[in-house]
Design a protein around this nucleic acid. Sequence first.
RNA 1: GGGGAGAUUCCCGAGCGGUCAAAGGGAUCAGACUGUAAAUCUGACGGCGACGCCUUCGAAGGUUCGAAUCCUUCUCUCCCCA
Length: 413
Amino acid sequence: MSQPNPTLWSLLRSRGFFQQCTGEEGEIEAAAKGPVTAYTGFDPTASSFHVGHLIPLMAMMHVQAAGHRPILLLGGGTAMIGDPTGKNEMRQMLSREQLEANTQGLRKQAERLLRFGPGQAEMVNNADWLMNWGYIDFLREIGPHFSVNRMLTFETFRTRMETGLSFIEFNYPLLQAFDFLELHKRFGCTVQMGGDDQWANILSGVDLVRRKTGGHVFGWTFPLLTTASGAKMGKTEKGAVWLDPERTSPYDYYQFWVNVDDADTAKCLGFFTQLPMEEVAQLSGLEGEQLRRAKQVLAFEATKIIHGEEEAKRAEAGARALFGGGGDLSQVPSAPVSRARLAEGYPVAEALAEHGMAKTNSEGRRLMEQGGVTVNDQKVTDPFAKLNVEDAQDGAFLLKVGKKKFHRLLVEP
RNA sequence: GGGGAGAUUCCCGAGCGGUCAAAGGGAUCAGACUGUAAAUCUGACGGCGACGCCUUCGAAGGUUCGAAUCCUUCUCUCCCCA
């Protein structure tokens, strides 16, 4: 392990990864003289991380880069309960098989971002210690340390007083607190990090560790990632933006970042790139049209971290071809079309629907009627227009919907 | 255990026998303006080669020329009392 970097906390602060932490001013810094073990948890509710998970993941990368030890906790056990935080209603319960599959998926992705191994990052699954408890035992062991009166004051639960809260969800903070205790015992973990909505859960853990072991541990939260207009970030018309290239292609991933609001650019450069802050500050200083340069850097860097430099370059080349004019079209998302299909006249509406540019044929036709569809740079407004072999350019059709959605159909030889 | 309210298209939410594919808002998409930004304005927003046809208003039956609207049963949710 490299020499621990005592400036980890100030680095995190300067990059935006700080909302609040427990302890007195400067206390956590002081406690971090030697290598610190810090953990953050993710419940495996899907088989891939998405952009919403990126802040804690990036934070863990900084922890490791600074010479400390990050622990990534996958909540195979807690996901059996379901975190009620931020939910208006109970989450659908996932089957054990599903959770196991999801855990595998997340594990694979995490391994690309952090170095795991002896003396390096740890990856744990809380199913390993949560699943074997007997109900009575757990209640006797942990229950006495939790005040229902206090739990009811948690924002999470207060909002649920209106819509209803089941007992299973009410138990969630106990389990998360127990995780911290367990990691403290096993790995000497002294810091739990998470989104600010986790504050109450994290505090529960800090308290529990103190009560059970007398240990002094810390909680640290990140700001919740919202767009300048207040909405949760990470959603597009296609749904969540995933880190799994099968779900969100590197090209789309790159596009997501190019398309962030002007107002969010600076914030995102701090969170989602590893560029030095001087460079971030300089890029953020750009104005107007120039700011797009900053977004291109953001997109490239963010894509590089997740998909690697090669993919980032490809995504960038594709974007340049489509938006910059000319260039290399080979990186644009594409699919083959058979000659037979074209011979009988391939309705544009169907082509759009079959390649994810419209949900249905009707929507495809509507888009055409509204002037939103372009084939090889020619606007097509006839809803029943067809593609024919002889209309192909360089053996392909470039379909475009709106300003940003492109797809190339390659005529089979 | 007793009493009450309710389940509507992605979300919220009108409709309460025909004029309902179902008001309004949000979200979303397209067009204009732009910088692959934001804001604003306009349009679209169940499916279908479509001024018509098909499938929708928790589920299944029934009444009726005709039902999201009435009746029956069922499932689920919420509230109040105990």
